[in-house]
Design a protein around this nucleic acid. Sequence first.
DNA 1: ATCCCGTTAC
DNA 2: GTAACTGGAT
Length: 221
Amino acid sequence: MKPPLSKHSIVFFQEKLLEWFKESGRSFPWRKKGLTQYQYIVAETLLQRTKAETIAKFYPQFIKDFPSWKALANTNLEKLETYLKPVGLYKQRSKRLVSLAQEMVKRKGRLPKERSELESIPFMGQYIANAVELIIFNQPSPLVDVNMSRVLERFFGPRKMADIRYDTYLQQLSYKIANHEQSKEINWAILDFAALVCRPKPLCFMCPVNRRCKNFISLSL
DNA sequence: ATCCCGTTAC
DNA sequence: GTAACTGGAT
């Protein structure tokens, strides 16, 4: 047995997934170039606990109707709830979006670069803070959600803690994976791979890294 | 560690 | 009917 966390296996994983992404990666409006900070952060907030395809249909119109932090900050909460009903979690989400927008208006649209200050912004948690570092600050950073965790755990071995955000093994592993010239593409590759191949019920037969995966045999029989 | 809280896919 | 979905706050 080879050591599961060897540099070699990490590079193997990165390269194979980047290759897979070029062929089979998904395309979403919030992955385009030239989005404003506002547009990107709103997308991340909408995506929480919701399928990306659902938000993809909804997002372009949302940006037209609420084009800026100011527009969103001045929106009536009940109207926003009605507006968000089709995508679910409308009470949470409207509250989050408005208070986030109001905070950003106070900050004149400027994001703090200090990590702890970034996470002090209401409803800007670990995930979105990582996404801001990755997409807006252009630094390598992992988008560690339940889906990325599932993929990494299957391939590299399971975590110990129940909560992804406090599991040091998973956190360190995900930073190693994301630490790459093409950090954005790696992250998107893993998210897409999680949604299309390494699903909760995995489709191992079409997996480009199945030969080295710890769960290949047990889960595909 | 626990609560929050909806649509969709299966 | 239930599990799943690009989590965050307390």
